[in-house]
């Protein structure tokens, strides 16, 4: 079955939106989604390599929104420079999670085992809690969070995913004209 551009089959689409780095631009984008009835699942914002622009990575629920309208309406915002719909199969996605888990000294070892398996990082240790972070694909971060949950999650903060398209693997034929 073919997956439409930007969808992951899980009911969401990822839009990577380059905007002018000006005051109020995020409010314009968020306001547009709100007033057109489109729902944002997650949103990550950061400046780009060119300081005049910022990049927004927006995950949109596709059931709630006719994606073509979302993109066309976004494109009408004067400060929006470029929009790319990212197909998960053709892109690299990452998300950062910071999480604090209950960790009595007796079971701390089990949690550290999970940290090792996932190549997560211990950020801070308390007498009965531990704070760790993991960067990975959103599904890997989901798995890690699921495995920690039985121990008792005290606090969790996820950034929402960011993404870039995968790079071309095949070099051009050097003998081609």
């Amino acid at each position: 079955m073919s997956v439409p551009p930007g969808t992951d089959g899980g009911g969401t689409t990822t839009l990577v939106v380059r905007v002018e780095n000006k005051a109020g631009v995020l409010a314009r984008v968020a306001g547009l989604f709100a007033r057109r009835g489109f729902n944002i699942e997650s949103l990550a914002v950061a400046p780009t390599e060119d300081e005049r622009f910022s990049r927004l990575t927006i995950v949109v629920g596709v059931d709630a929104a006719p994606m073509e309208q979302v993109v066309k309406q976004l494109d009408k915002l004067v400060n929006v420079v470029e929009i790319r719909e990212l197909n998960p199969a053709a892109s690299v996605e990452r998300e950062l999670m910071m999480v604090t888990v209950r960790a009595d000294p007796a079971i701390r070892g089990q949690i550290l085992d999970l940290v090792r398996v996932f190549q997560a990082t211990v950020l801070n240790v308390g007498y009965d809690e531990i704070m760790v972070s993991l960067t990975g694909s959103p599904s890997r971060v989901d798995d890690f969070e699921d495995l920690l949950r039985p121990y008792g999650i005290v606090d969790v903060q996820r950034t929402g995913k960011v993404a870039l398209p995968k790079l071309v693997k095949t070099a051009p034929d050097p003998l081609a004209p």
Binding site: G24, A27, R28, G31, L32, R35, V78
Partner: peptide, 9 residues
């Protein structure tokens, strides 16, 4: 914002 094509402060 929602009733203009664009606005400026």
């Amino acid at each position: 914002m929602s009733v203009t094509k664009h606005n400026y402060l």
